[in-house]
């Protein structure tokens, strides 16, 4: 079996996040970080050492945290509000709606250890609803980078962008997919490889698994297009329509419930503009059992082999 990431080193994207934050913080003193007793888990120790007064730790109080972020934005600051994704998005959802989305404040929401990164800590600590929750709100680009370089580029974009956004980061190690000079364009899918038989669309920790599945399918003579869809909203509808037209079948993979996430966002475009058979992989609307982060992805049918098998099954439905 050819594994494109056989000897690849795995990287924790949180490091890329804080490296960039510390760098842009040097030149732009309006950059501040807000957190909820999560200096360690958000890897903000370095930022705190460099800019002690610009790290605002409100304690274990997420609603307050997001409100404080909105107030800081009002005062001209550029707050990166960082917390474990379930507590940021779930606990403070109404603050995100009214104070960030509706008020259009320049708040960067950074969901740390999202998806099922917390593994055995269980469903209270998993954040597999956040695409659906935040995607339902206007004005907030929803972004799930796939490797450290895309993470760094997305953070640089966020720091320069005037307006809110939601960056969904993991803590689970991923191999490099992009080069260090990768440019992040919000709302643009990146075609990692072209192919004609079907398209796999993924983001976050699933993109490299999609690439591995594509390598397996290639051995079986199936040519796969792989799209990294980092931005879930606004979604790259043109890339989806082109994929549907040119490859005729689409598999989506996400570390999220299949209710309302990436697969749903893609399906919305497909039914509106270019109907083709689809298969949406993700967590099938259940709370996860006890297992590690990567084992959960495997258990929910998102090992490279299982993704390839789902793709094979989908091809049979292709007209």
């Amino acid at each position: 079996m050819t594994n494109p990431f056989q000897d690849a080193k795995l990287h924790d994207c949180r490091d890329a996040f804080t490296n960039v934050l510390e760098t842009v913080g040097e030149t732009n003193e309006n950059i501040v970080a807000v957190c909820n007793d999560s200096v360690g888990s958000s890897k903000l120790g370095g930022f705190k050492d460099k800019f002690p007064t610009r790290l605002i730790n409100v304690g274990i109080a997420e609603q307050n945290m997001v409100g404080v972020g909105a107030g800081l934005a009002n005062a001209g600051k550029i707050p990166f509000v960082c917390a474990a994704s379930p507590f940021l998005t779930g606990r403070a959802l109404e603050q995100i709606k009214a104070d960030v989305s509706y008020s259009q404040t320049n708040v960067k929401l950074v969901g740390i250890s999202s998806g099922m990164a917390y593994g055995e800590l269980g469903p209270t600590h998993h954040s597999i609803e956040d695409f659906a929750w935040i995607r339902a709100l206007p004005n907030i680009p929803v972004i799930a980078p796939a490797d450290r370089h895309e993470t760094a580029a997305a953070i640089r974009w966020a720091a320069a962008h005037d307006g809110p956004c939601f960056l969904r980061l993991s803590r689970v190690g991923v191999p490099d997919l992009f080069s260090q000079t990768h440019e992040f364009v919000v709302g643009r899918a990146d075609m990692l490889q072209d192919g004609g038989d079907l398209t796999i669309i993924a983001n976050g920790v699933l993109t490299h698994r999609a690439m591995m599945a594509a390598a397996l399918l290639k051995e079986q003579g199936i040519s796969v297009r792989v799209l990294n869809m980092a931005t879930v909203r606004p979604i790259d509808a043109d890339a989806i329509v082109a994929a549907a037209r040119e490859t005729g079948a689409i598999v989506t993979c996400e570390e999220h419930t299949t209710f309302g996430g990436l697969g749903s966002a893609v399906a919305e475009v497909v039914v509106d503009r270019q109907p083709v058979p689809m298969c949406r992989l993700g967590v099938p609307g259940v709370f996860a059992h006890t297992a590690s982060a990567n084992a959960l992805l495997d258990d929910f049918g998102m090992s490279p082999t299982a993704i390839a098998n789902s793709a094979q099954a989908l091809l049979k439905r292709k007209a």
């Binding site: 055995e120 800590l121 269980g122 209270t124 600590h125 059992h289 006890t290 297992a291 590690s292 084992a295």
Partner: peptide, 13 residues
């Protein structure tokens, strides 16, 4: 505790 499929998750259920 915390083993695959154990009901003894990191948080009580």
């Amino acid at each position: 505790f915390l083993q695959p499929n154990s009901r003894l998750n990191g948080h009580p259920n």
